[in-house]
């Protein structure tokens, strides 16, 4: 049994401690947002936050995550009450297929929590680990900029 804190809830997980977090999120906890893209740390589709840092959940075993609060897109809000990052992505219509989007949101969230005033250039740099095949990049950048405003309480 491994004890994890996911989106503010403590859960006991019965899985091999070497299991990467991604599989536990998707299979044991039934969460959809984090996606399998490569399992290699090359695409960022699986990005979530652990202890305030963006991590590739496909690579980090749950045994490294006890005591480090994990946040996924599900933890940012709901369809009815979206958090600022989610609201911004909806506003900017920043998705085509959307498969890469949760990873983008979590990496952006980790950046903005550390650096609320990150410049456009810094956002681009920070998102480098995440791939988008649909070419939604321009909208993702707009959405992150919008999230910055919303987080500052702007409208």
């Amino acid at each position: 049994m491994t004890s994890l804190e996911v989106n503010g809830r403590t859960v006991q997980v019965d899985a091999d401690p070497a299991t990467p977090l991604l599989y536990v999120l998707r299979n044991d906890l039934g969460l959809n947002a984090a996606k399998f893209g490569c399992g290699l740390g090359q695409c960022g589709a699986c990005t979530v936050m652990a202890g305030g840092e963006a991590i590739y959940s496909c690579l980090v075993p749950i045994s490294a995550l006890e005591g480090r609060p994990i946040v996924t897109v599900e933890g940012l809000g709901t369809q009815e009450h979206p958090g600022p990052m989610q609201e911004a992505f909806m506003e900017a219509q920043a998705a085509q297929c959307g498969y890469c989007i949760p990873g983008m949101m979590m990496r952006a969230q980790a950046l903005l929590e550390k650096k609320p005033g990150a410049s456009g250039e810094e956002v681009r740099e920070a998102l480098e680990p995440n791939l988008c095949r649909c070419g939604t990049h321009m909208r993702i950048l707009r959405a992150v900029a919008r999230a910055q405003e919303l987080m500052k309480g702007g409208r």
Binding site: N32, A33, E74, Q79, P82, F89, M90, I101, P102
Partner: peptide, 12 residues
Amino acid sequence: DIPAKVTGGEAY
């Protein structure tokens, strides 16, 4: 389709 995709809904 976007709201589910940005909130962790069942989308795929």
